[in-house]
């Protein structure tokens, strides 16, 4: 599961010849909605894994034909080129407002946003908080890689203290730039959200946990329970200036100190 490229690594056909009886039992294949194309993502990026999980979950829930995605501005803007459902782009940070309009018009559809940390927690923080506070019945997939990837590595609101970026060349100094912003904990102050969780995709175990949480988040929406947000700590080897493996270890060993993994709120079953 270490390959970040949805289209390349994971569903790849083996070159080894197999007997007919071996071929009959399919253990792993491309989800229906994951388009058979190369992604533009860098090696080791977490978006590929998340796109695959998204496609798997929507298919397993039987809602591919009801799904409407809202793509962000950022590295994942081209998500619609990879996942074969209805999509719209949103202006930078505005995905929750766009999703609000979509969901209120189509309460029977499954509407989700897919956003990065700059989009969701910086320029779009107002839209994020207010959609959550209204308890919009949408699912928010929040990819937190602690940096602006598409614009080549500037500080994000989630950048770690001391982390070097293009705009914090000597490391993030909280005296002048504040502290890593914990979105799940912030939203946990609100009454309306029903599921807030932070997870990652750096080990097979984490990928399975992330898939389960993602599924639960969509189920919340399908059962009209309300707003859910799944935050995914995601590696950005390119702008962390690491190899993919170093980036994966960095999340497990360091990023999770600032952003502890776990379910922050789950009131799906509340009375």
């Amino acid at each position: 599961m270490r390959s970040g490229n949805a289209g390349n690594g994971m569903g790849k056909k083996t070159t080894t010849k197999r007997t007919e009886s071996e071929v009959k039992r399919v253990l792993y294949e491309r989800p229906r909605a994951l388009l058979d194309v190369h992604t533009h993502y860098c090696a080791g990026c977490g978006h590929g894994t998340m796109h695959r999980l998204l496609a798997e979950v929507l298919e397993e829930l039987g809602v591919l034909e009801q799904a409407i995605g809202v793509a962000p501005v950022g590295c994942a803007v081209l998500a619609y080129d990879y996942v074969d459902i209805d999509w719209t782009e949103a202006a930078h940070g505005r995905a929750p407002a766009v999703a609000t309009g979509l969901k209120r018009v189509h309460p029977d559809k499954v509407v989700f946003t897919y956003q990065g940390d700059g989009d969701l927690a910086s320029i779009g923080m107002a839209e994020t908080i207010h959609a959550a506070n209204r308890g919009e019945n949408i699912t928010v997939i929040f990819i937190n890689n602690a940096i602006y990837g598409m614009t080549q590595g500037q500080m994000a609101p989630t950048t770690l203290i001391g982390q070097k970026t293009k705009t914090t060349p000597r490391g993030r100094d909280p005296e002048t730039t504040g502290y890593p912003l914990k979105v799940c904990e912030l939203l946990d102050q609100l009454v309306a959200p029903v599921l807030l969780a932070r997870t990652t995709v750096v080990t097979p175990k984490h990928v399975r946990q992330t898939k389960a949480l993602l599924k639960k988040a969509f189920q919340c929406q399908m059962e009209n329970v309300g707003y859910s947000l799944i935050e995914v700590l995601s590696p950005c080897p390119t702008y962390w200036h690491m190899t993919p493996m170093e980036a994966y270890h960095f999340i497990e060993q360091t990023v999770t100190d600032s952003f502890p993994l776990g379910v922050i709120r789950d009131v799906k079953d509340r009375a």
Partner: peptide, 25 residues
């Protein structure tokens, strides 16, 4: 549907979403 949006930005983008959904907004 009437929504008092949190900002002018949110209002126009909610209209964007509703229009994308196919309704007059």
């Amino acid at each position: 549907v009437f929504i008092q949006a949190e900002s002018e930005l949110a209002a126009i983008n909610m209209v964007f979403g509703a229009s994308a959904a196919g309704t007059r907004a």
